[in-house]
């Protein structure tokens, strides 16, 4: 599982480093998946029942990473949506989806 998270991160970073803004957004989405898997993996896998209290069950899976990841998923959704719209608006205003061309002209004066 750790390796899968690693490979996912690798692909995500590769995508983020590319020039097309759409690929970057896909990369961030992938990166968050990787991060979620990483947190879950680090929290320990399959050590007990689902963290819902039942009579007779004493061993539960660690609920804390789950809570963290749940928060992360939702935030990721918000951020991805934001990115998407940003890209869309940038494309509308600037007419390109290439980051190299979007580079600002902040010359020193």
């Amino acid at each position: 599982m750790a390796i899968a998270a690693g490979i996912l991160t690798m692909c995500a970073v590769y995508l983020i480093l590319s020039k097309s803004i759409l690929r970057i957004i896909i990369g961030t989405g992938l990166l968050s998946h990787a991060a979620h898997l990483l947190v879950m993996t680090m929290g320990g896998l399959k050590t007990g029942a689902a963290p819902v209290i039942k009579d007779g069950v004493t061993q539960y899976t660690d609920p804390l990473p789950q809570a963290l990841v749940l928060t992360a998923i939702v935030i990721n959704f918000g951020v991805t949506a934001f990115f998407l719209v940003l890209a869309y608006r940038a494309y509308q205003e600037l007419g390109t989806d290439n980051l190299e061309e979007m580079k600002g002209t902040d010359t020193h004066d």
């Binding site: 939702v74 959704f77 998407l84 719209v85 869309y88």
Partner: peptide, 13 residues
């Protein structure tokens, strides 16, 4: 909040 935000996003786009 979740419903509101999701729908705001979808709707505005």
């Amino acid at each position: 909040v979740v419903v509101g935000v999701t729908m705001t996003i979808i709707q505005t786009i």
